[in-house]
Design a protein around this nucleic acid. Structure first.
Length: 856
RNA sequence: GCCCGCGUGGUGGAAUGGUAGACACAGGAGACUUAAAAUCUCCAGGCCCGAAGGGGUCGUGCCGGUUCGAGUCCGGCCGCGGGUACCA
């Protein structure tokens, strides 16, 4: 079909109303103390250059909320910007030439072009990109303030090192332990890096989670686990030689009598000390350092161990000696970098001990099934009672948690250990050895050391004349950019060439939107008025890092006087929408010249003969089902075509219907046309009503009752992020209106309300209908309709009768019929009497207004 | 590996512990039309019985539990997805 042939001409209608909103400056956010403010924000996009359907879904959700809040009398702030620094721009420069800056800004232009036709209620005057010097200069100012307030420091940390390209790799650039370009085996290597002191706020960030009532419980739980508060015992093992004692941290001190060996991290000072004059051990450590830095890589790597030959004494028995092993699964970052292993009650320790033939000693048994551990560690929940064997504090039957508490007290009293609280959360490493990021504004001076840049010299801008023809950081090899004067002594000095993690950019943009052109990071007046974000909307993939970093940043900004106290938790409500997923089409017949997989766009492939093939070449495709849309996997769907053929309202309606906002959706293109047909139908019905003469009014009340129910249900849907439910109700109400025999005046009223109820989803069509039916002014300025309670009251209700939990019949009764009368009716019902055969029911349950259950 | 989710007809999905499948898509039948498109009306979870109205039975990934009653709550599996600190 050809939509442009229809009377519902989307191109014309949508352009017309977008112009009307622009002219009226409807979406320009201006401080107005007379109205309640409402700040709605969707997570801003990375400018990949292509708006994808996931963006459309995300922004439409925000837009529904924003428009609804405008209609309910709020002063709405709804801004948009771009998270514009990051690796893809550098990769593009390497792959196709050009400059990251040009690539990024041209992508931004393209995406804005693609976004504008959607008719989003955005205040475009506030737009910025994080790569604008105006933005990152303020970020540098924030960094200097953080430095001054002791929130930033330097220390060593491990990175992925590509020994062939001689460069640091991102985790994403390590594939199967090898560098993605060179194919070389990646090593872990230490570099001096900048860190934010987020771990100083572990306790606070954890405790404050309880105040975030309007956040999804799953996000709070994920953050809680990530912060990872634990209480355990710290104590030292004395060595049998004259070396320093080895301090360990354990969360299961109760299993100390089952200790098999003491394990230390390959990065432990003792490992490093021994490495110097033990070539075999050095070789082992080199082996341990192979592979990437991710927790996943480390946890799933083969468990390796090396006996150092060092022996330590058990704290409870001076005659008991334990060997000290280096084990590759022990992280230097957590606890003290040293543990004692209890193989009977930890599967990983058990596997390790079986592999290296170390002893396995049971410390407790299952109450019902006491038997020694063989190949499977006995790890009951900490709340479960177990039978203790030879417990040093005299426990017999007790839970793990009780035993832990007793043991900590015992050790503290005996003086050989102390209970300590630790957090899994590590400090936030922000240094990146890359060009396309915010330069860290410090200077290295031979005599003064590391010196902060002066604020008046900000922004420290990135140089434009750089090349990407070889790996590594172009800032490092730039001929002059590093040269500067020491801000402290004035002598020639060198700039820091590390740039900031892009998570820094996205950790305060929400605050900057309240005063995007201010000459300080924020303006207190504006922050006081607009903060906090009343509704934040974004992907669940950001549940931990982005949201936790932002929470830390808000606290740090408050400390430095850039945000008010109330903004320490900057997002009052959070909604995590599901991802739009799509199958990945991987070429099954060939790879590219570097041996890497080739991925095809959905439009490039076809399904036939029970398989999927590349249209042009006929090559076979391996279909990897349902994965997050990702530029590198080419499984992105382009919404621009849908907007072109069917209009923005159809695209908006379509992405909201049919699927609950929080759930992932597998994208299918069928259905867009159906959405268009429905909107065209609404348009047609409305114009028929607009042209109709007033007639008989017999069925008015029925229509108006349905209208008030629709108001109630659609409103409830919007307020609870049940947009799909709202849309289902709108379908039903449209059918009611189409079939209604009501008079013209009632139908006109109903159609105006229908237009209003649809307006958050389909704003252009709604304005069109509003004006067609003679609504006053712009619909966006009209107040949201309110449901009349009197019209919602139902006089009768249908009660299903269950017999033994199965529905057998139903009765229709007055809504407020007393329980006793309902019981009488039920017991007299043929379906019940025929089954009771004169006997009394065992039980009769009447849930008023709901259901009746007869138990025979 | 670890943490967090999700799993319902051919498809997307609906269902404060209370009639499973609302509302749609795809499909089928019909009306209108010279014909098609568009539009409108009706049907539709599987199986069984009945000419039909209707009735029976199974059914929400699998196994078990709590409850008068479980898609929903609890325990254990399986599968898929997200995160895992340098993708954003």
């Amino acid at each position: 079909m050809n939509p442009t042939m229809s009377r519902y001409s989307t191109a014309e209608i949508e352009a017309k109303w977008q112009e009307a909103w622009a002219k009226a400056q409807t979406f320009k956010a201006v401080r107005d103390e007379s109205k309640p403010k409402y700040y709605v924000l969707e997570m801003f996009p990375y400018p990949s250059g292509k708006l994808h359907i996931g963006h459309v879904r995300n922004y439409t959700m925000g837009d529904v909320i924003a428009r609804y809040k405008i209609s309910t009398g709020h002063n709405v702030l709804h801004p948009m910007g771009f998270d514009a620094f990051g690796m893809p721009a550098e990769n593009a420069a390497m792959a196709i030439g050009g400059h990251p800056k040009e690539w990024t800004y041209s992508n931004i232009d393209t995406m804005v072009e693609q976004m504008k036709p959607l008719g989003l209620s955005l205040d475009w005057s506030r737009m910025f990109a994080t790569c604008d010097p105006e933005y990152y200069g303020q970020q540098q100012a924030l960094f200097l303030d953080f430095l001054e307030h002791d929130l930033v420091y330097r220390k060593n940390a491990v990175v992925n090192w590509d020994p062939v390209d001689m460069t640091v790799l991102a985790n994403e650039q390590v594939e199967g332990g090898r560098g993605w370009r060179s194919g070389a085996l990646v090593e872990r290597r230490e570099l001096t890096q900048w860190f934010f002191k987020i771990s100083d706020y572990s306790e606070e960030l954890l405790d404050a989670l309880d105040t975030l009532e309007n956040w999804p419980a799953k996000v709070r739980l994920m953050q809680e686990n990530w912060i990872g508060k634990s209480r355990g015992l710290e104590f030292s093992f004395d060595r049998t030689d004259d070396g320093d004692p080895i301090t360990v941290y354990t969360t299961r001190p109760d299993t100390l009598m089952g200790a098999s060996f003491v394990g230390i991290s390959p990065d432990h000072p003792i490992s490093k000390e021994l490495e110097a004059d033990n070539p075999e051990l050095a070789g082992f450590l080199t082996e341990c350092r192979k592979g990437g830095t991710t927790e996943e890589a480390i946890e799933t790597a083969e468990k390796l161990g090396y006996d150092t030959g060092i022996r330590v004494k058990h704290p409870l028995d001076p005659n008991w000696e334990l060997p000290v092993w280096i084990a590759n699964f022990i992280l230097m970052d957590y606890g003290t970098g040293a543990i004692f292993a209890c193989p009977a009650h930890d599967q990983r320790d058990l596997d390790f001990c079986r592999k290296y033939d170390l002893p396995v000693i049971d410390t407790f048994f299952d109450l019902d099934n006491p038997k020694p551990v063989e190949t499977e560690a006995f790890v009951p929940p900490k709340e479960q009672k177990v039978k203790w064997i030879n417990h040093f504090a005299g426990l017999d039957e007790a839970t793990g948690q009780e035993a832990i508490d007793v043991t900590i007290d015992f050790a503290e009293q005996a003086g050989w250990g102390k209970g300590v609280t630790k957090f899994r959360l590590r400090d936030w490493g922000l240094s990146r050895q890359r060009y396309w990021g915010c330069p860290i504004p410090v200077v290295h001076c031979e005599s003064c050391g590391v010196v902060p840049e002066k604020k008046e010299n900000l922004p420290i801008e990135l140089p434009d004349d750089v090349s990407f023809d070889k790996p590594g950081n172009p800032l490092d090899r730039h001929p002059t950019w590093r040269d500067c004067a020491c801000p402290s002594c004035g002598a020639p000095a060198k700039r820091e060439t590390d740039t900031m993690d892009t998570f820094v950019d996205s950790s305060w943009y929400f605050a900057r939107f309240t005063a995007p052109r201010a000459e300080t990071p924020t303006s207190m007046e504006d922050a006081e008025y607009w903060m906090n974000v009343d509704q934040y909307i974004g992907g669940i993939e950001h549940a931990i890092l982005h949201l936790l970093y932002s929470r830390f940043f808000a606290r740090a900004m408050h400390i430095c006087g850039h945000l008010p106290e109330k903004s320490k938790e900057p997002f009052d409500a959070l909604f995590t929408q599901g991802m739009v997923t799509h199958a990945i089409f991987k070429n099954a017949e060939r790879t590219d010249e570097n041996g890497r997989a080739i991925y095809h766009y959905p439009a490039e492939v076809e399904e036939r003969d029970g398989g999927v093939f590349v249209k042009k070449t006929g090559e076979r495709i391996e279909v990897i089902p349902s994965a997050k849309m990702s530029k590198s996997k080419n499984n992105v769907v382009d919404p621009v075509e849908i907007i072109k053929s069917y209009g923005a309202d159809t695209a908006r309606w379509f992405v909201l219907s049919d699927s609950p906002p929080e759930r992932d959706v597998e994208w299918t293109a069928s259905g867009a046309e159906a959405a268009y047909k429905h909107l065209a139908r609404v348009h047609r019905i409305s114009s028929d009503i607009a042209g109709a003469q007033d007639g008989p009014q017999g069925a008015d009340e029925e229509l108006l009752r349905e209208m008030h129910k629709a108001i109630r249900d659609v409103t409830l849907g919007i307020e609870s992020f049940g947009f799909n439910a709202s849309i289902a109700k709108l379908y039903a109400f449209t059918n009611t209106l189409a079939k209604s025999k009501a008079g013209a005046a009632a139908k006109r009223e109903a159609a105006l309300v229908l237009a209003q109820l649809m307006s958050p989803m389909t704003p252009h069509l709604s304005e069109e209908i509003w004006s067609m039916l003679g609504g006053e002014g712009l619909l966006i300025d009209a107040p949201w309709p309110e449901a009349d309670e009197a019209m919602l009251v139902e006089s009768t209700v249908t009660l299903p009768i269950q017999i033994n939990g199965k529905r057998r019949a139903e009765i229709s009764v007055p809504k407020d019929m007393p329980k006793e009368e309902v019981e009488k009716l039920v017991l007299a019902h043929e379906a019940v009497t025929s089954r009771l055969e004169g006997a009394q029911p065992k039980k009769l349950i009447v849930v008023p207004g709901r259901i009746v259950n007869v138990v025979l």
